[in-house]
């Protein structure tokens, strides 16, 4: 089997199988979660739970609403770059097999490479911080380290694979992608599956009680 055949297999059949595994595990996880009792509040609302939920979902894009994000702008910046890189790498895994012409446009290709490249750096910084900062080390498990390492390696393979020219780089990228699709549901990376639910429940709860959105913009100035 030549490199071309391997690449074609990795781009297509392998990804479909891996995606199916991921979808199945996620479906089972969600089924398990939704079997759990949802605690509902009886007391009539003081605020607006729906507005709370909407704002809560968007809060990640509104760092000024949260003291923790405002106090640590560098961490927030790392977070944004890192997650943009992951999004770009996921997009690249579809663009390369299904819309390869897009990466023949140099500006698009460089944009994607730039994002994944910076995301790789952000990931490396996060890894170093997790390894040396006592408060982060204390709460980190093997999963925390390993997930970060393999994600960063994946971002690097995406960086080299995006020009869509080098077989080795592309095969590495798609092998990593397939591995990820199977690994992610069992790792901390699956947090994004829970994230929307967590934010919606949080927003509904605090929105209902009139706590969220928070009042007092001056706090944020003080936090700076």
């Amino acid at each position: 089997m030549g490199s071309g055949s391997i690449l074609r297999f990795m781009e297509n059949e392998a990804q479909i199988v891996a995606l199916s595994v991921m979808a199945l595990v996620y479906a089972l996880k969600l089924r398990w979660i939704f079997k759990k009792n949802l605690v509902k509040e009886i007391t009539p609302a003081k605020g607006d739970p729906q507005k709370g939920a909407r704002l809560s979902l968007l809060s990640i894009a509104m760092p000024w609403t949260m003291e923790s994000m405002l106090k640590h702008p560098l961490r927030y910046f790392e977070f944004v770059i890192f997650h943009l890189g992951v999004t770009a790498a996921i997009a690249a895994s579809f663009i390369i097999p299904y819309a390869p012409k897009l990466f023949t446009i140099e500006s698009v290709m460089y944009l994607f490479q730039g994002i994944t490249g910076f995301a790789f750096i952000a990931g490396a910084v996060r890894l170093i911080k997790r390894s040396i900062m006592p408060d982060l080390r204390l709460i980190s498990s093997m999963d925390d380290y390993f997930s970060l390492i393999v994600l960063d390696v994946w971002l690097l393979t995406a960086f080299f694979g995006i020009p869509n020219k080098d077989y080795t780089a592309l095969i590495s990228f798609f092998i990593m992608t397939a591995f990820f699709l199977i690994f992610v549901p069992f790792s901390k990376i699956s947090h994004y599956l829970y994230y929307p639910f967590a934010r919606v429940y949080f927003g509904r709860h605090f929105g209902r009680r009139g706590v969220y959105p928070k009042v007092g913009e001056k706090n944020m100035e003080a936090a700076k």
Partner: peptide, 22 residues
Amino acid sequence: KISRQAAISFGVCVHCGMCTDT
């Protein structure tokens, strides 16, 4: 004792440490 909200709160933490100094 594990409600849906609790299961999600247990599962969604990524140990980012943003809560630490709050």
